[in-house]
Nucleic acid binder design. Structure first.
Length: 767
DNA sequence: TTAGGCGCTGTTTTT
DNA sequence: CAGCGCCTAA
């Protein structure tokens, strides 16, 4: 029982309380994963069969880590029999086994967000609705939250409130689109992410035998990140656990950051009411961060009204103050981070992999990336476009999907004319109409094109396309997934097309395809538990990759700086953390400041960001940031004011204000060079919009920008783009001066001197 | 049928 | 700024 010795008293209590409902409120860094894994190991040591334990997480990575750690405690291979995985992947697996009950093929396709949007787009088009009014992302959001709330399209249709919301938003037909979307997915043999939850719930409620079967199978259920569960997940867990009631949920209300995905803290608050004797254990000792960091985190989160009272504490050293840095531009912010990393590596012997740069939105990675590259600091960006979402990967995967499931219309549409084979829009449209008329799938139309009267040239290309796909399907019987994928790449001409393209991106795309083929090979060579059939193995490969994100590709030993959104950083920890973009409208995000609930979620997000740091934490913000292609000025984030002053080192922020701003000569910034007009301040003048209409000024031969600090009112100046003009007046603080200049051609403009490249042509005072 | 150019529009977070 | 839809030319 030595595994128990490593636990503190509270942790041990949580591990040993094995029977009956248990809720663990686990603060950040309090050893939550350790408790969960030890608990599972303990159950197994007590004689519980691994097959009877279900553990659900939100990321594959968390699941894998859990599995590995249990394996380590137990030794042997028993841990492999545990059902540990994400909600989505575990349910996908169960649904695959039970698919026929619901009328789905067992090798159903899983649609990712792109597939779903693309299908919605075709549906909206087919319904002759305005595509701007019913934008796929908007419609998908509506449908998604309905499904996550377990509201079927029929119920949606009857729901007064939902209908009214749609009316008010001038999108009254959402419920109709919802209905066709569901029907079409079903026809395509496809489920989207939300369907994996919705249909799992449907399975358990509509088929009592299935419910009973799984209720008895999963005698012990553990749920990680319970604060992030939504109504569907909540209901499923409740159903599954109803017989044994051995449900252990772990969560931290302070880290609930997924309400936009339907998650609700209510599930945590509700838990105690759902069962008669709920044992609650609070883990409040933090093993991760310095006292300083923890104090700041506690202080910040205390501004939230909605929370379960608790106070995280730690035995760790006090540590250093948190450093606040202000820069002039987003590019400077990136440079500061890159320079600080270099400096810290030298001074404190940190490795690259001890740093993380966290931001609110993916778009912010760019300025970081550019500056890290400039300083030759190796890095890796998580999120954004994941490997499996890249075009070239999706193209090849679409072929594989179609081979496994010819009903999959999205896959078919994607590749029917890629590489180009003369089946264009007209043909596809005709086929779609026919499919709808005869109530068959698109594929079924293409299978018998002769009976639908296509022109003979078209007929021929369709037939050879179908023949090709069918020949791949035949291959499935005797060849493994890799052989099929390889042949597909070759015979469709897809690989060749990428090989011929020798541009940088073309080479990357080619390499990506090779990487995909390698991963398929690896998959085929790793035996699966139940020795499933070969075609099923390609099917299961496809199911699995749709649920992968690129956080799952992490090789943790890689010595690189990690860049990711705060959302993606949840559950991770780093010795040194930069939280960048601490500005109003960005963080808290402008989309999330209108209600207390939203704002509190932003604050929890900030709390998550702070608590990722073990020993050093930097917060940065910038006065000027490019957004939407023009320069925006933001105030410092309100959250900064919530940090206790004695834990915050503001020297750097101060220095940045009094020091001259980094000059463009020293660090050329491509954006500024290419578009000098972008330097005019949007919102102040009629800057960039007007700039487009002005005839381009050709700068003088010996044009050389002068030091901005030397400019004064009354000077005659030349601007690279706006031409000659005179400074009327200057305003703004000394380091961010804004000049109003009257240009001969371009008229009156407000120009930020730090960015504009201006040359003095005549000095009134001197001359 | 396809490629290429122009103009509009939008940026939150993700399984 | 970028990605996408729409239009035009070939």
């Amino acid at each position: 029982m030595d595994y128990l010795a490593e636990l503190n008293e509270r942790q041990r209590e949580a591990v040993l309380y094995t029977e009956g409902p248990l809720m663990i409120i686990a603060g950040a860094g309090s050893g939550k994963t350790k408790v969960l894994t030890t608990r599972i190991a303990h159950l197994m040591k007590k004689g519980v069969d691994a097959f009877n334990i279900l553990a659900l997480t939100f990321t594959n990575k968390a699941a894998r880590e859990m599995k590995e750690r249990v394996e380590k405690i137990l030794g042997g291979t028993e841990a492999r029999n545990l059902y540990i995985g994400t909600f989505h992947s575990v349910f996908a697996r169960l649904l695959r086994a039970e698919a026929t009950r619901l009328g789905y093929p067992s090798n159903f396709t899983i649609y990712d967000t792109d597939d779903a949007k693309s299908l919605l787009k075709t549906i909206v088009r087919e319904m002759n609705l305005d595509e701007k009014q019913y934008k796929p992302s908007f419609v998908l959001n509506r449908i998604s939250s309905a499904k996550n709330g377990l509201i079927s399209y029929a119920e949606y249709h009857e729901d007064f409130q939902l209908r009214q919301e749609d009316q008010r938003a001038n999108r009254p037909l959402i419920s109709k689109i919802y209905e066709s979307y569901v029907k079409r997915c079903f026809k395509n043999g496809a489920m989207d992410f939300d369907d994996l939850l919705f249909n799992m719930h449907a399975l358990l409620t509509r088929f009592p035998e299935a419910l009973v079967k799984y209720q008895h199978k999963f005698k012990y259920i553990l749920i990680d990140e319970y604060q992030d569960t939504n109504a569907a997940q909540y209901a499923i867990i409740k159903l599954l656990g109803a017989v044994h009631e051995n449900i252990c949920v772990v969560g931290d209300d302070a880290q609930s950051i997924y309400s936009f995905r339907g998650a609700t803290i209510k599930n945590i608050l509700q838990f105690e009411k759902d069962y008669d004797d709920v044992k609650v254990v609070k883990l409040e000792q933090n093993y991760r961060s310095t006292q300083s960091i923890l104090k700041v985190a506690n202080e910040v989160i205390s501004n939230n009204k909605m929370q379960i009272p608790k106070e995280l504490w730690t035995d760790n050293i006090h540590g250093e103050k948190i450093i606040l840095m202000r820069t002039a531009t987003d590019n400077d912010e990136g440079r500061f981070v890159a320079e600080t990393i270099s400096e810290q590596k030298l001074r404190n012997h940190f490795h690259e992999n001890e740093f993380a740069i966290l931001y609110r939105t993916n778009a912010q990675s760019r300025s970081m990336e550019e500056n890290l590259r400039r300083k030759n600091i190796p890095y890796r960006i998580y999120g954004g476009v994941s490997f499996y979402q890249r075009k070239e990967i999706k193209d090849l995967v679409a072929y594989l999907r179609l081979i496994v499931n010819p009903q999959d219309e999205e896959a078919l549409r994607r590749i029917i004319n890629y590489p180009a084979r003369g089946i264009g829009k007209t043909t596809l449209e005709k086929a779609s109409v026919l499919a709808a008329q005869h109530n068959i799938t698109l594929w079924q139309v293409l299978e018998k094109p002769a009976s639908f009267g296509f022109r003979s040239a078209t007929l021929q290309v369709i037939e050879s396309f179908v023949y090709m796909i069918k020949s791949f399907q035949v291959m499935l019987e005797k060849h493994n997934a890799y052989d099929v994928a390889f042949r597909v790449g070759k015979e469709t001409g897809l690989v060749k097309e990428l090989f011929v393209d020798k541009s940088t991106e073309g080479i990357t795309r080619y390499e990506n395809i090779q990487e995909l083929l390698n991963s398929i090979k690896e998959f085929t060579e790793t035996p699966t538990e139940e020795g499933e059939l070969l075609d099923k193995r390609l099917g299961s490969y496809l199911q699995q990759i749709t649920l992968l994100t690129d956080a799952d590709q992490d090789e943790h030993d890689q010595d690189v700086v990690r860049l990711m959104t705060i959302h993606a950083a949840k559950g991770l920890e780093f010795p040194c953390v930069f939280v960048v973009g601490m500005e109003e409208t960005l963080f808290p995000n402008a989309m999330a400041i209108n209600t207390r609930e939203d704002l509190e979620e932003e604050r929890r997000l900030f709390y998550v960001a702070i608590t990722r740091a073990k020993s050093k934490l930097w917060l940065t913000f910038t006065s000027n940031r490019y957004r939407f292609g023009n320069l925006m000025q933001n105030d410092p984030s309100r959250f900064l004011k919530e940090i206790p002053k004695d834990h915050l080192d503001e020297n750097y922020a101060g220095r940045a204000i009094t020091e001259p701003v980094y000059r463009t000569e020293r660090y050329p910034d491509s954006r500024q060079q290419n578009t000098p007009a972008a330097a005019s301040v949007s919102g102040l003048g009629n800057g960039s919009a007007a700039a487009k209409r002005i005839p381009v000024h050709v700068p003088s031969e010996n044009f050389k920008p002068d030091d901005p600090s030397t400019f004064e009112a009354g000077m005659e100046v030349e601007h690279q783009k706006f031409g000659f003009g005179k400074i009327l007046r200057l305003e703004g603080n000394p380091n961010n001066r804004i000049a109003t200049i009257s240009f001969r051609q371009a008229g009156e403009k407000k120009i930020m001197l730090n960015y504009a490249r201006l040359q003095i042509t005549h000095n009134e005072e001197a001359g």
